[in-house]
Write a protein that binds this DNA or RNA. Structure first.
Lengths: 132, 132
DNA sequence: GAGAATAGTTTGTGTCACATACCAGGTCAA
DNA sequence: TTGACCTGGTATGTGACACAAACTATTCTC
């Protein structure tokens, strides 16, 4: 297997894990990402859309669906009468934390195929690639 | 950045590349994957669905949309009156090849951040992870 | 041959993403 | 200060995508 295939296949493998973890809680990958982003932020719609790489109209819908499920809530921005701040509800926070732990568990399990030295190497190399 | 984050972020980075290459030809990631799979196969609907991890009803729709765009065609299975074989049209094959080359180009560019030794290491480790 | 299994399609529902048009609240300049 | 413009967000309409359940047509099995 060549390098390109290896990295693409690995990417799909990880995406399958994310999708599976989401599915355990009836969440899509995007919804799971949404919760993850909100763990340490209370962004407005535009900012949230930037984090997700989505148009603002897409973001509205995403948030509305999550809100309908009680995972997320809108509050008026204190400094801008047009603005909205999106934040997690307690239920949403719980799910975000469970999801994150489960993802960590599964990715860690995947990485168990490497020994400690290899894992350290791999982390180092991946880190170079992601924010290089 | 910890190991889990690194591998997840890397996965998203690769997915963004795949989406961008698809978008150049007005193809979604799934459609691009569909073309890629058909490059060296003429599977039936069920087999195709397995490759893609999709339900057969999803596969029907996917193939129908690709067929409407002239990228793919259905032919009756010679050995099974119920069956259908899905294969690339010349236009579809062209797109599949262009897409694959462009993906290779971009992934290779991404990996240019590593030196030759690191790249070899990384490939080795990724290969262990994907089919381990 | 009759009944069960199999390959694919159809239909209906929901998510997700986008573009466009729209509204209300800000901002800036004359 | 007030009119023109800009901005944050929502609404609407369209299309891709995914699934489940119901259906058709063939093939397999006994």
């Amino acid at each position: 297997m060549n390098t390109v295939d290896a990295v693409v296949q690995l990417s799909f493998q990880v995406q399958r894990i994310l999708a599976a973890v989401g599915a355990e809680h009836e969440l899509s990958t995007v919804q799971l990402r949404l919760l993850g982003i909100l763990r340490d932020r209370q962004p407005g719609m535009l900012e949230l859309g930037n984090h997700l790489g989505l148009d603002k109209s897409s973001t509205t819908g995403l948030v509305s669906r999550a809100e309908k499920r009680g995972l997320v809530e809108r509050s008026p921005s204190p400094h801008d009468g047009r603005g909205v701040l999106v934040s997690l509800t307690p239920a949403g926070r719980l799910l975000a934390e469970q999801g994150e732990q489960e993802i960590a568990r599964r990715i860690t399990a995947l990485l168990k195929q490497l020994n400690a030295t290899q894992r350290k190497q791999f982390t180092h190399l991946a880190a170079i690639l992601v924010h290089g």
